[in-house]
Nucleic acid binder design. Structure first.
Length: 409
RNA sequence: AAGUUGAACACAGCG
């Protein structure tokens, strides 16, 4: 009987929740009882595959079979809704747990709060924190780190400072994740000096940086064009036997290309397998985009063709980069051609359309740009503020401000 | 012994 639960675990581990569900239904019909933990694993697996409807069905099924959902069940559901960006449902399930007599713990609150952070609703995140404290729970370092990350990404440094203060007051020590979060926040805000200070601070506090900490620093340097500094960090990592990951290499490769050091980037790419890293689509997209931005659009295109021969599947980012590259060197025809080709692999999104519309405008093909704008709407892709900016600018520059005014409505 | 709750890092568009 244990074997059934363990089979379920394996199926879920290999992302086969459908099969697991069928097996569960079949055996349940025959009178077998599964552990609650097995149901929980299945819910998690459906959530991971983005199928929250199925996850919820499992939840309903367990109640029907007389299994009481536990904290883990509710957490799995809330986390699933959070990760699938459905905060309304996440809140509903969260609220229902107390009603069902299952009081949320700090981890459960944290799951929900993280959802608010990721949805850029820091007010709600903070309100939920206050709520949690009011009912007698103490925030821990994980929760603080999540909130700090939220405030960093929302560019609200006052929020970060206040939380760090709170931590001190409650004598909760920052850990490597807290520091890495802060360091990344500084880097993204262009404050590399501050990031460096934090790095020494953490070491002084007895907290060793890990690969994520270094990756954040490397990316910060790369984004600001300081590739030699980024490479210094890589060397430091290697000295400390902190093994670089695909993220490390992707940052560096992209940064080097953008800095016009494509050959160094390629050297690194070749070095990856030796450090046990395999380039992924982000690595290649970064390389392609970097080449485009360094005015080597043909090289980028050639690289894509090479990759296609090896079975590589490009995505919308890959094509958006190349389309932008061709537009910027005024080869809009090739951009349009790629736009047609991409559908073999993926659909254009608002960024792709906007990029192409901008290209058409700047090459004086306003009518085609307008057509593309219509096509985008027909395609069910909603223009955003960037799209309007681009098209309005194009119309105005072509002395068609009447149409621009029309568009504003 | 481990085995079902929460955290940080890399890719595309106007300015």
């Amino acid at each position: 009987k244990e074997a059934y639960d363990s089979l379920m675990r394996s199926l879920c581990e290999f992302d086969k929740p459908r099969e697991a569900f069928d097996f569960l239904s079949e055996q349940t019909a025959k009178g077998h009882f599964f552990n609650v933990s097995t149901y929980n694993i299945l819910i998690k697996s459906f959530a991971k595959c983005g199928n929250m409807d199925a996850a919820y069905k499992v939840f309903e099924m367990m109640e029907r079979c007389g299994h009481a959902a536990d904290l883990v069940t509710y957490c799995a559901l809330v986390d699933g809704y959070v990760k699938n960006k459905n905060m309304d449902q996440a809140c509903k399930v969260f609220d229902s747990m107390a009603v069902a007599g299952c009081l949320p713990d700090v981890a459960a609150y944290t799951t929900l709060i993280r959802g608010f952070c990721k949805a850029n609703q820091m007010d709600k995140a903070y309100a939920t924190l206050r709520n949690m404290i009011a009912v007698g729970n103490k925030p821990d370092v994980v929760l603080y780190s999540i909130l700090i990350d939220g405030y960093c990404k929302a560019k609200k440094s006052e929020g970060c400072i206040k939380l760090l203060d709170d931590m001190k007051t409650c004598s909760i020590a920052a850990n490597v994740v807290t520091y890495s979060t802060l360091i990344d926040g500084c880097c993204k805000a262009g404050q590399i000096d501050k990031a460096n200070i934090l790095l020494s601070e953490m070491i002084k506090a007895g907290c060793s940086p890990n690969v994520v900490t270094y990756n954040a620093m490397i990316d910060g340097f790369c984004q600001s064009g300081a590739t030699e500094m980024a490479l210094k960090v890589l060397a430091e990592m290697e000295n400390k036997e902190c093994h670089p990951t695909v993220v490390t290499y992707s940052s560096l490769i992209c940064g080097l290309c953008k800095a016009g050091k494509a050959s160094d980037a390629c050297k690194l790419l070749k070095k990856m397998p030796k450090s046990g890293c395999k380039p992924n689509i982000i690595t290649y997209n970064g390389l392609i985009d970097g080449l485009c931005k360094a005015n080597k659009v043909d090289d980028a295109h050639g690289l894509l063709d090479e990759l296609l021969k090896t079975g590589f599947t490009p995505n919308v980012n890959t094509y958006s980069s190349l389309i932008d590259g061709y537009c910027k060197i005024k080869n809009v025809d090739m951009a349009v051609k790629l736009f047609g080709q991409m559908r073999r692999f993926c659909s254009p999104n608002v960024i792709t359309y906007t990029t192409l519309i901008r290209g058409l405008c700047s090459s004086g093909q306003i009518n085609s740009a307008r057509k593309m704008f219509d096509e985008m709407n027909n395609d069910g892709i909603h223009p955003d503020i960037y799209t309007y900016n681009v098209l309005l600018k194009g119309l105005c520059r072509a002395r068609r401000s009447e149409e621009a005014r029309e568009l504003m409505k």
